[in-house]
Design a protein around this nucleic acid. Structure first.
Lengths: 187, 187
DNA sequence: ATAATATCTAAACAATCGTTTAGATATTAT
DNA sequence: ATAATATCTAAACGATTGTTTAGATATTAT
């Protein structure tokens, strides 16, 4: 058994995730990753293959980060209130003391809109699809709404989520919370 | 008088705008601009200084493109209905036959979020500030709402605008129009 | 026609990009 | 202690980035 790694892959990928989160994909260079991850290029490449590999792993890390929120949402059973609570939970991820991070997926989505990196594109789309499925599920609770209304409201809420994500890079957390309240007044 | 330019600066910058619009700032290379603008690097640099200059001019071009919509909005006087109409007018810009372009400003905003290119950053922020001012103005028409309600609704609508812009890259025009209807149900 | 000059083409620039490689270092099973 | 081997450092890779430059070309006032 030879020399062991001096770093933990999970730890360094979380740092990488934060760099991508803040700067996007293209703006983030291997040099920046080297510095922020605290390991050198050789280690990055041997652990994650290439830059896309680092990003893909960062995306998984993000998913893991928000999985608790998703799980809570999935297991809830109060209908619309659950969706609202999920929105509140979600945006709390977009803020930390230092700066407004926005949503990792939304921030970087555009960069892969016309990209050949299909794997990343699909991962990001599936992220939104899963969300839509859950929202529909919660709207169906009670069984009072017709199918068309549910689809319409689901679309609206999904788009509202887009708005929250985009705006959370620009607006204060308080403003976003006001927005959530307004959003659910019409549901 | 020496040899005149064989290209029109207004025409080529519109082509540049479309490249930035589709691909963002970083992904767009001078090589791509050269090809799409139909002139070579020397001409680009002598006309616009550098890459940032091309982008800044593209931003102006975008503003000019939507200025008619803004002007119409500014001169309207029916209150909330004007805002709704403005939203409809705005999103029509985000679509053309080929693909979903989204909003030029929203698409590229993230790339300058932490950039040293203050001029671009400020231009983009002022864009949103102007919009907020106009929305408040329209909400005040009639004089029935109190100040707090107006601010709350203005924030909501501005954030909804963010959502529309972000979602118009992903969703169909029909879905976006449904979203607008839902948005104004609560105003 | 000629001189003046801005625009054109096309090559080269240094710097940085993502990626790879060579060699020194450190660890563990034997 | 030694052999085996994966990880480390650090330099170099070719390609591409944004940018500049040199020289040919074309246009117009004289």
């Amino acid at each position: 058994m030879p020399r062991p790694k001096t770093y933990n892959e999970q730890e360094v990928i979380e740092k990488a995730m934060n760099v991508f989160w803040k700067n996007g994909y293209e703006t983030t260079s291997m040099q920046m990753l080297e510095k922020e991850m605290g390991i050198n290029k050789f280690s990055i490449y041997s652990s994650f293959g290439n830059k896309q590999g680092v990003f893909l792993e960062s995306l998984k890390c993000y998913k893991a980060k928000v999985s608790a929120i998703f799980e809570k949402f999935k297991n809830a059973s109060n209908g619309v209130d659950d969706i609202k609570q999920f929105f509140y939970d979600s945006i709390s991820v977009n803020y930390n003391g230092d700066y407004q991070k926005g949503c990792f997926v939304t921030n970087t989505y555009n960069e892969f809109a016309d990209s050949e990196v299909q794997e990343i594109k699909e991962q990001m789309c599936s992220f939104m699809d899963n969300l839509k499925g859950l929202i529909i599920e919660k709207l169906e609770i009670g069984g009072t709404k017709d199918k068309e209304t549910i689809m319409q409201q689901a679309n609206f809420l999904l788009l509202a989520k887009h708005g929250l994500a985009a705006a959370s890079r620009v607006n204060s957390q308080q403003e976003i919370e006001d927005y959530i309240e307004m959003t659910f007044k019409s549901i």
